[in-house]
Every structure is written in structure tokens, then in C-alpha cells.
């Protein structure tokens, strides 16, 4: 019988395949590989969505019935899904395939991490504090934000790759889109990501007020999300300063992504109320 965990392992594989094909397509200029990559990306994203919905149904079959965003495992599945969705949007709108490799790779890594035994894929019933619609909106908006910022990070990496050294138009680097396109794409992804992590912080505050009677408490996870927010606010403003373009903005975007990663995974090492996501 197909269950969501099994489906996710197929999806993981297809994301991996997609990453590989994007890499081959990019390096060897192979149109076929690029087509396969895009097709695999679409199939993996659709499969990921199905697995998410299936998981949702499974929580009902288990007798608990909750939106499947209640554990690290479930959040990782949602994370890869949002990466797939946002990436495909970018590919179809901008006709840029070059970050496909990073998108597929991040989705693959997220799901590979989810499959580790230490993460645990069992469906757990919800603790009373997690039973809230605000929590669902909070986590969903956050992950859309995270996914966009993950892609912004990969565009920034490409930017640095393209702008370092001589002859940006030769070899593989010649296939990276022009710097101005990359710069614009980063900016747009950061704006989307910033809007959504802001929504995430806000809905989180509303939820915290309902659950614990305070909208802000300097809990490490809250504080780290604020740190991330400050860094991306810095990026938006640094763009307004003369001389702060290109490379420096790319570095801030990378710094911001490091903060995103720490907010997501690292904070669990610190004591606090956010037990899992």
C-alpha cells in the first residue's frame, strides 16, 4: 500500500534526478537534459504535493486529524514542496533554468534529511498548544518565505561565481544569465521572502498571544527570526546606498540565508518553547 512516507522516498529520488539533470544540462549545454530536469521537477513537486495531502488524510485515519505541519518531518516535506512551487514559478516566468540545480538539490536535501531515523516520520497527535489555525498560517507563510530566500541564496552564489575572475562570458560561466538579471532576480526573491517571513513573524505573534498570552517573548526562535528579518531589511536598504551593489548585496543575501538555516535547524540546540519548527 502506498503511504506518504513511501511516496516521499520516490519524490526524494526524483528531486535528486532533477538536480543531476539540471547540472548536466547546464554544464554540457544539453537541451534534452534540461527538458528531463524540468519534467522531473514538475513530477517531483506534484508528487510532493500528493504526499502532503496523503499525509493529511493519514492523520485522520490515525484518528487525530490535523494539518500536517506539526513535526520537523512534516515541516521538511512542506519546505521541499514550497521550493518546488516557487522555483517552477520562477522558471516559467523568467525562463531561467540556471537555479534549477540549487532548487532541486535543496528540495532533495530537505527530504533526505527528513528520512533520517532521528527525525522520525511517525504521526504524532497534537499537543494542546499546537491546535491553532494561526499556527498553520504561521508555518505556511514562513516556509514560503524560507523557500524564496533559499532560491535568493542560490542566485547570489551564481552572482558571485559570475562576477569573480576574468571573462565572465567564457565556458560554464557564460551560461549564467547576465549580472543585472541575477541582481534583479535576487531582489525579487528577497522581497517575496521578506514579505512572507514578516507575515510568518506576525502570525506567529498572534498565535503566541492566544496560546501563552504574549505576542513577543524573546524566545530564541523568535529572536533568531528577528535577526533574519534585520539582515534582510539591511539588504533592502543597502541597495539604496551608493556603491552597495552586486557583490556586497550577494554577501548579505548569503549571510541572511545562514540566519534562515540557523533559525530553522540551529535554534533547536538552544533552550526554548519552539520544540520542533
Amino acid at each position: 500500500m502506498m503511504d506518504s512516507t513511501l511516496l516521499i522516498s520516490y519524490v526524494t529520488f526524483i528531486f535528486g534526478l532533477s538536480a543531476l539533470s539540471y547540472a548536466i544540462g547546464g554544464i554540457f549545454k544539453s537541451k534534452t537534459a534540461e527538458m528531463i530536469a524540468t519534467a522531473a521537477m514538475i513530477i517531483a513537486t506534484a508528487g510532493n504535493l500528493s504526499a502532503f495531502i496523503l499525509r493529511w488524510m493519514e492523520t485522520y485515519w490515525e484518528g487525530y486529524g490535523h494539518f500536517p505541519l506539526a513535526s520537523l518531518y512534516e515541516s521538511l516535506i512542506f519546505f521541499s514542496l514550497t521550493i518546488g512551487i516557487i522555483y517552477l514559478f520562477v522558471e516559467f516566468r523568467y525562463k531561467i533554468r540556471i537555479i534549477g540545480f540549487f532548487a532541486a538539490l535543496s528540495a532533495f536535501l530537505a527530504l533526505a534529511y527528513a528520512s533520517l531515523p532521528s527525525v522520525g516520520s511517525q504521526i504524532q497527535p497534537l499537543m494542546p498548544a499546537l491546535k491553532s489555525n494561526w499556527l498553520i498560517i504561521h508555518v505556511m507563510t514562513y516556509f514560503f518565505g524560507y523557500a524564496a530566500l533559499t532560491l535568493a541564496f542560490s542566485v547570489s552564489l551564481l552572482f558571485l561565481l559570475k562576477s569573480s575572475g576574468e571573462n565572465p562570458e567564457s565556458g560554464f560561466r557564460g551560461r549564467i544569465p547576465e549580472l543585472k538579471t541575477l541582481d534583479e532576480l535576487t531582489y525579487q526573491l528577497v522581497m517575496f521572502g521578506f514579505l512572507f517571513i514578516t507575515l510568518g513573524i506576525i502570525t506567529g505573534a498572534v498565535w503566541a498571544e492566544q496560546a501563552w498570552g504574549r505576542y513577543w517573548g524573546w524566545d530564541p526562535k523568535e529572536t533568531w527570526s528577528l535577526i533574519t528579518w534585520f539582515i534582510y531589511a539591511t539588504l533592502l536598504h543597502a541597495r539604496l546606498m551608493r556603491g552597495w551593489e552586486g557583490k556586497r548585496l550577494a554577501w548579505i543575501s548569503i549571510l541572511g540565508f545562514a540566519a534562515v538555516l540557523f533559525t530553522y535547524f540551529g535554534v533547536n540546540l538552544l533552550p526554548g518553547l519552539h520544540s520542533y519548527i
Binding site: L226, T234, H237
Partner: peptide, 11 residues
């Protein structure tokens, strides 16, 4: 820019 970065780091 300086203030926002400083707030981020000190937090």
C-alpha cells in the same frame, strides 16, 4: 544599515 546589522548581531 549599520544599526540594523548591529541589532541583528547583538541579538
Amino acid at each position: 544599515v549599520i544599526l540594523l546589522l548591529t541589532l541583528a548581531l547583538t541579538s
